[in-house]
């Protein structure tokens, strides 16, 4: 598996760099945080994306920017970002226009990573149902490349925060075989990307979160 992962990385790095080059409007790849209405705190934990980008810069060949981008579904720049990230604790509401546009984005090569910060699960699923009435979330098996892209996670998604107790979930929506929406729930991976003093998580836990995040980004860019 390790050999396979290394091979994957070697093969995928050029692709990653290519994707990064096309991540307008900045010259370098960045993760775009999705702003949404409905009341949920789309903006929470401002340190998480810069930390994740720094981790990618330091540990992969991917050359990323240092700041997160912020984008609304209706922004004209939406299609400039290959990877969107959505999180929050509250309600997410997409208007019909937003639903259509997000669907258009995802069906045309976009990737959305959603991380439940506790409290957005119901409304996120509801919105995704609106976006893709015919698709359903499927649990990703541990053999999926996401769990071995760069760092191996043979036991599935790492558990970062307790929330409901029990193991975390990694689910996905697919379109024509391509993974278009990745959803981690009951673990809060992105909280693990925050500055150490924010949640005071132990270093190994933070590191696991960042490593899993690196897997997600590399997978999203390479698939």
């Amino acid at each position: 598996m390790k050999k396979y992962s290394l091979l994957c990385i070697l093969l995928l790095l050029p692709v990653c760099q290519l994707s990064a080059q096309h991540a307008a409007p900045g010259s370098r790849f960045t993760i775009a945080r999705l702003k949404y209405s409905g009341g949920g705190d789309w903006y929470n934990d401002p340190s998480i994306i810069p930390n994740m980008l720094r981790f990618l810069n330091e540990n992969t060949n991917l050359r990323c920017g240092t700041d997160e981008a912020r984008v609304e579904v209706t922004d004209n720049a939406l299609f400039s970002y290959p990877v969107l990230f959505i999180t929050g604790h509250g309600r997410i509401v997409f208007s019909q226009q937003e639903v259509e546009r997000l669907r258009n984005y995802l069906l045309n090569g976009g990737f959305l990573y959603a991380d439940d910060d506790y409290g957005m699960d119901a409304s996120f699923r509801k919105m995704m149902k609106k976006v893709f009435p015919d698709k359903k979330f499927v649990d990703l098996p541990f053999s999926h490349p996401l769990f071995s892209m760069l760092y191996p996670f043979p036991a599935g998604v790492p558990k970062i925060h307790e929330h409901d107790g029990g193991p975390g979930k990694t689910q996905a929506l697919f379109h024509e075989g391509r993974l278009i929406v990745l959803y981690t729930q009951n673990t809060n991976i992105s909280d693990g990307w925050a500055d150490p003093e924010v949640h005071q998580d132990p270093e190994p836990v933070r590191r696991a979160a960042l490593q899993f995040g690196a897997n997600i980004i590399l997978f999203a860019l390479a698939q």
């Binding site: 409905g38 009341g39 949920g40 705190d41 604790h89 509250g90 309600r91 910060d117 506790y118 409290g119 957005m120 499927v138 649990d139 990703l140 098996p141 541990f142 053999s143 036991a155 599935g156 998604v157 790492p158 558990k159 970062i160 925060h161 307790e162 929330h163 409901d164 107790g165 029990g166 193991p167 975390g168 673990t187 809060n188 909280d191 924010v198 949640h199 005071q200 998580d201 132990p202 836990v205």
Partner: peptide, 23 residues
């Protein structure tokens, strides 16, 4: 403020290790 989710579980308590079942 329209957010209704309001629970003690929102606190960021570091997760324990659980054994997950592979789908």
């Amino acid at each position: 403020v329209q957010k209704r989710e309001f629970s003690k579980k929102r606190r960021a308590e570091t997760g324990k290790q659980y054994r997950a079942l592979d789908p």
